[in-house]
Design a protein around this nucleic acid. Sequence first.
DNA 1: CTGAAAGCGCTTACAG
DNA 2: CTGAAAGCGCTTACAG
Lengths: 341, 341
Amino acid sequence: MKNRRITLKDLAKDLNLSASTISRALDNHPAISESTKKLVKKKAEKLGFIPNSIASSFRTNKTKSIGIIVPRIDIHFHSLVISGIEDYAYKNEYNVTIFQSKDCLKREKEIVKILQNRMVDGVIACLSIETKKCDHFKKFEKLGVPLVFYDRVPTDFDANKIIINDFESAFTATEHLIASGCKRIGHIAGSQKTNIFKARLEGFKAALVKHNLPIQEDFILHTKNLGYEEGVTCANRFLELPELPDGIFCANDYTAVSLIQVFRKADIKIPQQVAIVGFSNYPISKIIEPHLTTINDCAFQMGESSAKLLIRQIEDKDDSVNSETITIRTELIVRESTKRA
Amino acid sequence: MKNRRITLKDLAKDLNLSASTISRALDNHPAISESTKKLVKKKAEKLGFIPNSIASSFRTNKTKSIGIIVPRIDIHFHSLVISGIEDYAYKNEYNVTIFQSKDCLKREKEIVKILQNRMVDGVIACLSIETKKCDHFKKFEKLGVPLVFYDRVPTDFDANKIIINDFESAFTATEHLIASGCKRIGHIAGSQKTNIFKARLEGFKAALVKHNLPIQEDFILHTKNLGYEEGVTCANRFLELPELPDGIFCANDYTAVSLIQVFRKADIKIPQQVAIVGFSNYPISKIIEPHLTTINDCAFQMGESSAKLLIRQIEDKDDSVNSETITIRTELIVRESTKRA
DNA sequence: CTGAAAGCGCTTACAG
DNA sequence: CTGAAAGCGCTTACAG
């Protein structure tokens, strides 16, 4: 049942040519005559020749493979990024090998070690939540393996990074609330150990300052991981305040959805009494009622940009000395949850 | 900056041993003395030796790599399956290379061709929606590359398949509506060109028949891809009927969510007037209000099972002649959308 | 318990 | 325009 695979040598013998010529003909080498190329390709097709990519990788030291390290594949943001990476990689004839760190530093280190065995030409990574120091990634540079980080990127380490403008996005979201007439604006913040959530809180505050609005500390609620349940807790804490905020900017969509649901049950009108803005543009933001105004975090595009930068560095030897930071501009998507007019 | 990589030969020279011995020592070959093993491993560690996995793959004809073909990575179901595959593969020291067919037959064929170049030891695939004939997959068998399908599996082709019990799941869901007191039960069906949706419709009908309830054709609405928007259309069609169903089983969660939202706006009480069951246990099912009763489709487990079966067939030569179908048993998750008591 | 040797299937610098 | 030859870094059957 299982056939022996056809090799270059088989083709060579069949055609009375050398393996070198076959190899060059299939690779469209300019030195080979058109007629020979045609002949070789026809024969290859007929015999069902499939080049052994492992042999080729071994010989050339190129695998045309990208390694990806994500916290979890089943988080929508990451699956979108991966999709963007795969898309760009596929067009450029690279393939994509995925590892999940499960947000566990130990596992991240294991994966980094695995990826050093020449399996991939370059690596794209989003740091695990536990990762503070990135020394384990430094080996890649020594090995000449380009590396690009996205979203959760190292701070102690000069590297290629693809990020979004979190500060400005938060600033824009908050200004949008102000423009909608909100004067007492609250925030649900993510872990301040994570840069992106820190930037979102700072952008929020900066917008208030710019417009001479007070920063009320009891309007700023902190969470550990911005989960749906934490959002419910925050909503209840807002309800216990002497006076509700009239606008709330949430550092992600899940907590925004919790707010909407808890507030609606408490007969609070959204957006009339409280306008709400989320962050990420998760699918649920256009299903929840009222539909949620949010920041599109351009996850797919982050993936594309990561792959583009990485592949450029893989193929462009001179380039790989520099490290580059690319900031992707998000956009505010205005929906019912802030349409007060 | 870029160091030359250490090879077996370097280690051998350094230790005055042969490359054969180094190779065996690192591989814990029983013939090598413990003292030599210790010596070699220590030296390897010290020099930072990283085995060249491509050279090893080339030599042994094993890549320890699994190829996955999914329609899209960013569909939650598939990202969960991939997560399950990666999890099992990682534990067994396999890695996972992903391709998206984008539900396009042409691209699926391209990917299948790419995967035949020895890059992977086995393949897991979910067919593109356009795929009717699976001839392009037959090459894998000839090449001795094990192949497992999940979810959308071929019918014209004797293959390894991981599926869920769609018929029974639909039957259970429908019986649950009946047990909740529903007597006029409707269904939102997926494309009847796809087996799983056909099975769900049949399971639905079978439950009605068993309990001597009428099958009302105008209570069975057909959709193309069970999208959220189509769900809204279906909801409105239900509302135009002379009498509403008192229970509706939807072939997925998105359409169920649409029903809930449109019905609530029309002041129809859920579950008192209409009880609703979905299918898939998407994250939104426990966020939408009322929370949605649904079938957990065990996507992660499908991934695990696919990987398990595939790896067994990769490593167990005798086994690979048979093809196996594994049916994963789903479970009904009862939530507010059907709690009428 | 260890070593010498062959070879996996390509690619490419060199030669003509 | 084509070929002969070397070699990428491992693994393993064979020999001792």
